[in-house]
Design a protein around this nucleic acid. Structure first.
Lengths: 219, 219
DNA sequence: CAATGTATGTACTAGTTAGTTAGTTATACT
DNA sequence: AGTATAACTAACTAACTAGTACATACATTG
């Protein structure tokens, strides 16, 4: 990495590097699939945007659909890895919920590609996720953390006992995913940009409020 | 309708009926676009699933993209018409909120095609909505109704004064859209079908609770 | 009943697109 | 140095796909 041939700019026939070629294809493919969907993305265009050729896509990934699945796998495992770093166990349950919501909020805002891939995959009835061994059996650290937070909140009597972790996760996801995924139609129809930086703090606090009020409601 | 030629089953060269031909193309196109996205849908296949030919698609709609926009326009105006029939003005504000949420809930559940078209349109950055004069300037009856309900709720002192109608609409939409739009990936990953009929009442009540608790929270 | 425009069907085309064939070049290992 | 193999390239192809040219049947009206 430190030693570099003097006369080898980005355009030169890059030195052979299987890993770099592979990951470059994957990165370009992620952008293209996220931008245009599976059917809308073009193998030729993905190839053109890399420093290699179309043949390499078939060499490394086998075909368009396998490449798309590889993109999905990378995107999902990236998120799971991030979720695993979450450490909210030591916090007060209410504060832990707020931080978990904020974390999801921040993540979805800063990874629009991932949100778009999820939308696209839903259009396809999640059949590629089902086909992938890696994705079909992927654990969900966020849900585990949520389960433990709820347990502690219930123990102190602050949280309702009749709320399932999966429903809390759903509330948070729905809000954060919708804000990113439906940004364009919402803006086209209501002239209201949910991702306007000036409204960011408002929405970031709002989702925490919503979830906590639901969890602490008396009934 | 009552008088029918004895020997003219569905396969016979249907009698000339411009309106029927047009609306049949539109109905088939809606299913195809909703199912496969704009790029994934095939003009030839849409034609094959009607009783007419591809030529008629170009005759009536001009092209694939114009057909897709016509589908979008039909889908959106259908929903606006339904929203306009909403009559929750005479109800207690809290009950009106519940009914409005339930109405959105029911609608989105029973119109998955519409939800999918919205997802697809977001993938395309809502550029077809922007291009359509009909859609770009479409009023939103649900938001108007919401504004009036909030006003009444604030007047009685039951509702917070610092909550915008658009944000309430967003909460409801996020929940109801997510449940339908992300059904497949959610089920693939959590083995949890948000549209399981046994969970329907639970979620239908839940969104009303969430919104009301947010609107009536003391702070 | 002629004429005129609307509605419809058949067959085609130009351009695109996923995937392949047939190789060449660099690198690691002996 | 020689060689096996991994990494890579250019050019090709078969199938597909949006869109069109052209011909014709039907229906309405003067």
């Amino acid at each position: 990495m430190a030693t570099q041939t003097p006369d080898s700019p980005a355009t030169a026939p890059a030195a052979r590097d299987a890993e770099r070629t592979r990951s470059e294809i994957l990165a370009v493919a992620r952008r293209e699939f996220a931008d245009k969907g599976f059917a809308g993305a073009r193998v030729d265009e993905i190839a053109a945007k890399t420093r290699t050729t179309k043949r390499m896509i078939y060499y490394y990934f086998g075909g368009k659909e396998s490449l798309y699945i590889a993109v999905l796998e990378q995107a999902y495992t990236g998120i799971r890895a991030l979720e695993q770093q979450v450490d909210v166990e030591h916090l007060d349950p209410a504060e832990a919920i707020r931080q978990l919501a904020a974390l999801t909020f921040d993540h979805h805002e800063s990874h629009p590609d991932f949100i778009r891939l999820v939308s696209i995959e839903n259009i396809h009835h999640a059949r590629h996720i089902a086909r992938s061994d890696i994705l079909a059996g992927l654990a969900n650290p966020a849900l585990d953390a949520l389960t433990r937070i709820l347990d502690r909140g219930r123990a102190t009597g602050r949280f309702r006992r009749d709320v399932e972790p999966i429903d809390v996760h759903m509330m948070i996801s729905a809000f954060c995913v919708f804000r990113t995924a439906n940004r364009y139609t919402f803006n086209a129809i209501f002239k209201w940009d949910m991702l306007d930086p000036d409204r960011r703090d408002h929405y970031r606090t709002m989702i925490g409020d919503i979830v906590l009020e639901y969890l602490t409601a008396s009934r």
